[in-house]
Nucleic acid binder design. Structure first.
Lengths: 214, 214, 214, 214
DNA sequence: GATGAATGAGTCTTCATTCAT
DNA sequence: GATGAATGAAGACTCATTCAT
């Protein structure tokens, strides 16, 4: 422990450099996309020269993948969060959704990861696949579990749709894209959006009277 | 009109050239993204040389924008389709959704336009804006109108969410992305997805008993 | 034939360009070696820019190999020359050697090819092998045939050494290296060298009296 | 002298460092040529880092020259060997040649020095000149002396060729190149080559009967 | 003495764009 | 209209060399 504190200035910087570069790479890749980003600009953002970037990362490609891995939002706490929920399932779902929007949709980092998946996916299919398996799928699984519990508890309809979390969470993804595309240009009422999402999902569009028809 | 029919084979081909180039550009831009696409490859796909492409389009940028405009799926018929719907609103909605998935989600062209918006949006913001105003917004408006009529008819709940068509249509967008990312790698049951979407949207997740709680 | 004369200025230049580049490449590679030669300098020597070189040759490596093939001295006429020789074999050998020195040793092009084989051989082993099979080996074979005929005619000693043309021709190779290394700095009496080579080869070093000893 | 023996292990290693570096440099330069050799790889071969190499040698160029000097095969013993020869000159020559092949041609180090002279000669002309004066010329001189003695003794023909040792020794050089180029790929009968060399040189190609002709 | 992070000049290679034919 | 040779700016990547620690 004492030894850690004795890290020289050099050692400290060395340890921090790769992370600084990864952060800078994120910003540049976000701004211009993989192809149009210049390694030199990433370096400049950190305040070093190209050579330094190449000292830590063999190629631009490797750097991109490292950046992606580094930036992937951990979802462990999402799962943990779900475990703490109590009360009626509709309320749990509402709480989960608020948390989900907060952590995934309104977080710029998460949003840009999503953009990378779309825009660089064909160039980095392994990256997409890995990210899906490690981050997105577990997130969906967590949601599905919650719904299944709600069904088991008799509080949620036993609809086959509950087995498809992409359905239930898609408005959040939609909002992510909205932010990506129009964030500055077209403001929108996020609170209303989320509330609408919850309301619609829980209650559906149809009036009580009509519901019997179906 | 008569003159048009008298156009020789060569003249016909000439007239078609720009369109052929636009189609080829679409394929290449889809495959590699704006920056990584080579004008020469677009030309080769048509069977001409670079010079010819530049004869019709001043720059690569102009070509991209022209291609985008050319490929934008017309939505006039969607609107027309909506007008033909009759019967109870839940059924109309269902019919509309099926039509929407068919025309928008399962159509490769529409999907790739969506991808362009995400991936090249920051490079072509005017293109994104125009496309939103001219294609996406009208589509959403059409959906909103349908819902409003349903509410007026007393067949749909007067939820504020119905004013936000992004909410109701988001699963379709979600499925589009799924296709973009995993089309070949991870097949999925589209029918179940769409049915789930409709079911969830119309009826919500909550059981009837619970619904009173909220 | 008439058509050939109608080649436009453009077409003529196009046909000549690759050859010009190959010649320029030869000079630059000779002067600096493969690694230290800049593609841009090759271009400048022709009076064009890098891009043009890359228009004709995909990579520097490909250019080097093409240059090597282009510059390889054809040996067909050497063989032809041998067939025209008449008279006593010692005289034929002498004539052949003079021709060989003229064509192979005193020709700068041949000399530099030899240097390439030594200096770039490990980088281009296939090139070395091909050159050996196509040019050097046939040359040696031609010499061996001549010697064998001389032996059959009873005019040459049936020494096993005659089966190894590298032995009999090595002084020529040696002189090639001398030129490469010291051409300008240390002039030498080439006539005496060649005459010495012929004399030594035909008569050996040993006096007649001694010869019986061995 | 006593002090040298008291040198600690560490001190010994330190004293050896420059030599280790020189050896490593030899291997790397042999493998890749001057330009393509990386100082870092030389360092790695010794087990130190770049900085250490630069501590002992100012530049890569200096290192190359130092390496070359260090590796130059001393010829003093060759000369000494010559002095020990007795008996008839043809036998002395034979013995000398065997020794020469052993020490110069079959010795990898000598061979690679030869390669350096050819391939890096234009970059390091002073090195070539020095090496010629200090190593190659003396070697040739020694051979010439031997031949002159043989002539004086009446055992060798008073051919002018004997004044040109490059002529008499060239097959050895030839074999060196053979090894450089094809060592692994095309094995050859070295014994036969050397014997052929000696036979041809001593006795010539021409049959006794023919010899009178010339 | 030794280290290795950092530099930046240097090179290969690509490709949008031009224009003479 | 169409071609395609030529241009040259741009960007990835390498590596000799430096120097603070």
């Amino acid at each position: 422990m004492a030894e850690k504190k004795k890290l020289g200035v050099r050692a400290q910087r060395k340890a921090a450099r790769p992370l600084e570069i990864l952060d800078a790479a994120f910003e540049e890749f976000v701004a211009h996309g993989y192809v149009a980003t210049r390694v030199e600009d990433i370096a400049a953002r950190v305040g070093v020269t190209k050579g330094t970037v190449y000292f830590y990362f063999e190629t631009k490609e490797v750097l991109f993948e490292a950046m992606f891995k580094h930036m992937a939002v951990p979802f462990a706490d999402i799962r943990a969060q779900l475990k703490t929920l109590t009360g009626p399932y509709p309320d749990r779902i509402k709480a989960f959704f608020y948390f989900f929007y907060e952590r995934i949709v309104l977080d710029r980092r998460s949003r840009e990861m999503l953009r990378f998946i779309i825009s660089e996916g064909s160039r980095f299919p392994q990256v997409v696949d890995r990210h899906y398996e490690e981050t997105i799928a577990p997130m969906f699984d967590a949601a599905r579990e919650l719904f299944e519990e709600g069904v088991a508890a008799g509080e949620l309809r036993a609809s086959a749709a509950l087995q498809i979390p992409e359905l239930t969470l898609s408005p959040a993804i939609m909002l992510s894209f909205w932010y990506m595309l129009f964030a500055d240009r077209k403001p929108r009422d996020v609170k209303a959006f989320i509330d609408g999402h919850v309301d619609l999902l829980l209650n559906g569009m149809v009036t009580r009277a009509e519901r019997t028809i179906k």
